[in-house]
Simulated assay, not measured.
Amino acid sequence: MQRKQTNAISVGNVGIGGANPIRVQSMCNTDTRDILSTTAQIRQLADAGCEIVRLAVPDDKAAAALSAIREQSPVPLIADIHFDHRLALAALDAGMDGLRINPGNIGDESKVDAVVRAAQQHGAPIRIGVNGGSLEKDLLKQFGGPTPEAMVESGLRHIRMLEKRGFTDIKISLKTSSVLNTITAYKLMADQIDYPLHIGITEAGTLVRGAVKSAVGLGVLLYEGIGDTLRVSLTHDPVAEIGVAYEILRSLGLRERGPEIISCPTCGRTEIHLIELAEQVEEALRGVDEVFTVAVMGCVVNGPGEAKEADIGIAGGRDLGIIFRKGEVVRKVKGNDNLLPEFMKEIQAFLKERRS
C-alpha cells in the first residue's frame, strides 16, 4: 500500500494528513445541551481510543453548552453545523477545535465570509461534509441523481468557496450509504485534490451490517492509499465504532491498539462453551492498550499448534484447559469454570513481565 500524500492540518493537537497516522473519530449521540451526559460520553470515547469527537449543534442552547464541554474534554472537538452561521461563530468562540459545515448552506456570501474569518482567527479547520442524501438540486438534475460525480462536484464547489477567501485549512468527506458509490466518489476526488480526506460509509446500519459495510468500503479505500481520518457510522453505541475502526486499521497493518483476539470457529470437536469464553476474554481485555495477540481455541489437540504465533492463548477440552505461549504449553487448568479466571491470571502475569 502506498498512501496518497495529502496536506497536513491540525484539529487541536491532533495532526491529520501528511505523515500523520490515520485518525479515528466518532460523534456523540447525546443531547449536546446535556453537558453531563455529553462529557461522560466523550470520555468513554477517548478511553476507547477515539482521537476526535464531533458534536451536533442544532440550536442556541446547544451552542451555549459547548464552552463547558470543551473545558472538560480530553480530545479535540468538532462542531457539526447546518444552515445557521451564527451557531458556527458561537462554536468557535466557545473554543471548538474545528467545524463540519457546507459553506453553501449557511447563508449568503457575507455569512460565509464571517465564518471563514472566525475560523482563520481561531486556527480551526473546516470539514466540508458532502452527503449523497442532501446534494444541491441543480447537481441532482445535472448528473441525474446523487452519483459519485455529483458528490465530487459538490465538494469541489464548496472547496472553491473557501479557497476564494484564502482558506485552505480544509478536509473533505463524501459519504453515502452505498459502498460502491462512496468508493468511486473518494477515488475521483483523490485524483483532483491534496486536502485530507475523512472517509466513512454513512448510515451504514446496525452493529453487524454497519461493521461489514464499513469494513468493505473503508478497507478498499485504505488499501488503495485513500483516507487520512475515518469514522465507522453505526446505529449503536458510538464507543463500538472505535473498536470496529481499529480492527479495520489493524487488519490492513495501518494501526494497532489493544490486544488482537483470535479464536477458532466452533466445530464438532469443541467440548467447551467457546463462544462464551471468547466473548468473556474480549470483554475482560477491553480496557487494555498494549498490543499483543491472544488466542481462544476450542480444541486442546490442535489449538496450540493452530495458534502458535499468539503471544498467549488458551485451548479448552472436556473439563480441561491448557494455557500456552507461542505454541508451548505453560500449564494445565482443570474444570471449565476455572478457564477464564486462570487464563486472566496468566495474562496479567504476561503483561507484568512485558511492562517490567
Rank of each mutant, 00 (worst) to 15 (best):
residue 5 Q to T: 15
residue 5 Q to A: 13
residue 7 N to A: 13
residue 8 A to S: 15
residue 16 I to V: 15
residue 21 P to N: 11
residue 22 I to K: 04
residue 28 C to M: 07
residue 33 R to G: 14
residue 35 I to V: 14
residue 42 I to D: 02
residue 53 V to E: 01
residue 63 A to R: 03
residue 68 A to R: 11
residue 70 R to N: 00
residue 71 E to S: 13
residue 74 P to C: 02
residue 75 V to Y: 01
residue 78 I to Q: 00
residue 81 I to V: 11
residue 85 H to R: 10
residue 89 L to K: 09
residue 93 D to R: 13
residue 96 M to K: 02
residue 97 D to A: 07
residue 102 N to P: 09
residue 105 N to H: 06
residue 106 I to A: 07
residue 110 S to L: 13
residue 115 V to L: 09
residue 127 R to L: 04
residue 132 G to E: 04
residue 140 L to V: 08
residue 149 E to G: 10
residue 149 E to P: 10
residue 153 E to P: 08
residue 159 I to S: 05
residue 164 K to P: 02
residue 168 T to N: 15
residue 170 I to P: 03
residue 170 I to L: 13
residue 173 S to A: 12
residue 182 T to F: 04
residue 182 T to H: 08
residue 184 T to L: 11
residue 187 K to R: 15
residue 195 Y to I: 02
residue 198 H to P: 02
residue 200 G to W: 00
residue 206 T to Y: 07
residue 211 A to T: 13
residue 216 V to L: 09
residue 221 L to M: 09
residue 221 L to P: 02
residue 225 G to L: 08
residue 227 G to D: 07
residue 229 T to H: 03
residue 238 P to F: 01
residue 239 V to T: 05
residue 252 L to A: 07
residue 252 L to Q: 07
residue 257 R to S: 02
residue 259 P to H: 05
residue 264 C to I: 11
residue 265 P to V: 07
residue 273 H to C: 00
residue 276 E to N: 13
residue 278 A to F: 03
residue 284 A to N: 05
residue 288 V to H: 10
residue 289 D to C: 03
residue 291 V to F: 09
residue 292 F to Y: 14
residue 294 V to E: 05
residue 299 C to L: 06
residue 301 V to G: 08
residue 303 G to A: 07
residue 313 G to S: 08
residue 318 R to N: 14
residue 324 F to D: 02
residue 326 K to C: 03
residue 330 V to H: 08
residue 332 K to R: 14
residue 336 N to A: 15
residue 341 P to L: 08
residue 348 Q to Y: 01
residue 353 E to K: 15
residue 356 S to K: 12
